[in-house]
């Protein structure tokens, strides 16, 4: 009974071929798992005297990805240190949703958008049911596997759901995808921040341009509320007690007809889902379960099978 039955996995070896990218805390290389021939990406974590030891983002990626396994979340294949460097071995994912959105030669059908949104929500749902907030959802972090599966990546800002006595920083999520409670500097927030970002990504898939592109943090507030209406005590009780709820322009919310004009191709059930995800008051915003069970996903057309989704037309190298 007390025996541990886990056999050690065979020691894997990897080749590191070309450097494909460099971020603030890591250099990314392409490579192969030698035994299986599987393509992988190796993230080599930078260490330097100016850094305060292991980078927080690297710590978060290891911490959360080690325990998450889901077809729509990037797989952390291995963690190893070699020559005093920490290396994260990740699934190789050649494209991301931003590249697809920007590729003007690709046409999306409504079924394609539904498929990408469904996979995104499934991945986010898996994070949330494990009490993990991603806090940086954007098209650029939704990677696409060669078989068409969408995978949520970059857990460098992720954290577990805070307890009520903990203060969280509101300086998270890339500006254009930042939920109103974050714009108001809330120190306590929930999974709802991720769902807002999904709603904005949904709009971006339909429009093919960023939905709420604020120039700076102040402009973001204005752009957001001009498009969706400024929250008030009536629509969002206690909103005025949030730290940055001041100097606001008050805009009325968009009517249903205005939204129909804004998203010409959207069906009524698509608009319902988007309204649910971009609900200003986080307490009323839809959660992943409600979104996944919404009529939009059962209405025709059925979501495109991942392998039949559009792929990038140009290859850069």
């Amino acid at each position: 009974m007390l025996e541990t039955k886990n056999k050690p996995a065979p020691v894997q070896r990897y080749t590191k071929s070309k450097k494909v990218g460099e971020g603030t805390y890591a250099v990314v290389f392409l490579g192969k798992q030698i035994e299986s021939g599987r393509n992988i990406a190796i993230k080599e974590i930078k260490t330097g005297q100016f850094k305060d030891g292991l980078d927080m983002s690297a710590l978060r990626e290891v911490k959360y990805l080690q325990e998450l396994r889901h077809v729509n979340v990037i797989e952390l294949v291995d963690v190893f240190s070699a020559d005093d460097n920490l290396n994260l071995v990740l699934e190789f994912l050649p494209a991301d949703l931003e590249m697809i959105i920007k590729d003007r030669e690709i046409l999306f059908s409504p079924a394609d958008m539904k498929s990408w949104l469904l996979m995104t929500l499934r991945g986010v749902h898996h994070c949330h049911r494990n009490y993990i907030l991603h806090r940086d959802l954007k098209p650029n972090n939704l990677l696409l596997a060669p078989d068409g599966q969408l995978k949520i990546a970059d857990f460098g800002l992720a954290r577990s759901l805070g307890s009520p006595n903990e203060d969280l920083t509101s300086n998270v999520v890339t500006r254009w995808y930042r939920a109103p409670e974050l714009l108001f500097g809330a120190k306590h927030y929930t999974e709802a921040v991720d769902l807002w970002a999904v709603g904005i990504i949904f709009a971006e898939l339909m429009l093919r341009v960023p939905y709420l592109p604020g120039r700076d943090d102040l402009d973001q507030v204005d752009v957001t509320f001009k498009a969706l209406g400024t929250p008030t005590e009536e629509t969002w009780p206690n909103v005025s007690s949030l730290p940055l709820y001041n100097n606001l322009n008050f805009y009325p919310g968009p009517s249903r007809q205005e939204l129909r004009n804004r998203f010409l191709a959207a069906t009524e059930s698509a608009l319902d889902l988007m309204n649910g995800l971009t609900e200003l008051n986080p307490a009323n915003r839809w959660n992943t379960e409600k979104a996944l069970l919404s009529k939009y996903f059962t209405d025709l057309p059925a979501p495109t099978e991942p392998e039949n989704l559009p792929k990038l037309t140009k290859k850069d190298d």
Binding site: M1, T4, K5, A9, E67, V79, F80, S81, A82
Partner: peptide
């Protein structure tokens, strides 16, 4: 050793079996 790998052990079975 030049290369050292890290994995989470799968030990929960022991606790659940009790």
């Amino acid at each position: 050793i030049g290369e050292r790998r890290y994995m989470l052990g799968n030990q929960r079975k022991r606790l659940y079996s009790e």
